[in-house]
Simulated scan of single mutants.
Amino acid sequence: MKRGLLAEFETPEAMLRALTELRSRGYRRLDAFTPYPVHGAEAALGLGRSPLTWILLPFAIAGAAGGYLVQWHNNVYAYPLNVGGRPQHAAPAFVPITFEMMVLTTALVGFVVLLVLTKLPELWNPVFDVPGFERATIDRFWIGIDARDPALIRPIAERDLTDLGALTVAWAGSSPAKERP
């Protein structure tokens, strides 16, 4: 969220009630800023599961296949050694390194994909300029309504947030959303 309305709440329960009520009133582009994870916030925001696991699955398979193929290439093709009549291609011996390559590849790619999906690092955001927003990392709970939300009509949304128990309501960003009649 770069622009929109921000509302400050004192307790996580008040924030969750407000999120649920705002979604029932038709707001869809909502965000929550909390000092710690709040149980039920994902459901109140209408968020689904993260796509990260499905994005990383092909990389995990590729890492495991790559680890297995390197071992096979070295033991069977490039440097075959006949030691005590043991087979060149002994699949059980390849399991530990195959697993470790899968974990290593998934962790490294997962870190990069996580940064891309979360659009980090973000050194500055207009919401940081809202007075009191720094308390979102200490003891306050904030709800944001994105300016791109089709249901956002600023005076009505401000009244809704105030009626739902917001301590303060402020606009974040350079220019307010268009006023609708």
Score class of each variant (00 low, 15 high):
D149G: 02
P150V: 00
L152R: 02
P121E: 05
W124M: 07
L120N: 12
L120W: 10
G173Q: 03
E134D: 15
G165A: 04
S175I: 11
L152S: 01
P131F: 04
L161W: 05
R154D: 15
E122F: 10
R159Y: 00
V127S: 11
L123F: 15
D163C: 10
L161H: 04
G173A: 03
V130F: 05
P121V: 01
I156P: 00
G165D: 05
D139Q: 07
S175G: 12
A177D: 08
I156W: 09
F141E: 04
K119Y: 02
R154W: 06
W171V: 05
A157G: 12
I138S: 12
W171Y: 12
P150A: 02
D139N: 13
I138Y: 09
A177S: 11
W171N: 08
P131M: 01
D149Q: 02
L161A: 05
G132W: 09
A136F: 03
V127A: 12
D160V: 04
L161F: 03
E158K: 06
A151D: 01
L164C: 03
R148W: 06
I145A: 01
L123D: 12
W171C: 04
V169Y: 10
D139G: 06
A136I: 03
D163P: 00
F128P: 03
W124T: 10
G173V: 01
V127T: 12
E134Q: 15
D146Q: 04
R140D: 09
F141G: 08
P126K: 06
A177R: 06
L120H: 09
D139A: 05
E158P: 06
L164S: 03
P121L: 00
F141T: 07
N125K: 12
P121G: 06
D163R: 15
L123Y: 15
S175Y: 11
N125A: 12
R159Q: 12
W124C: 07
P121H: 02
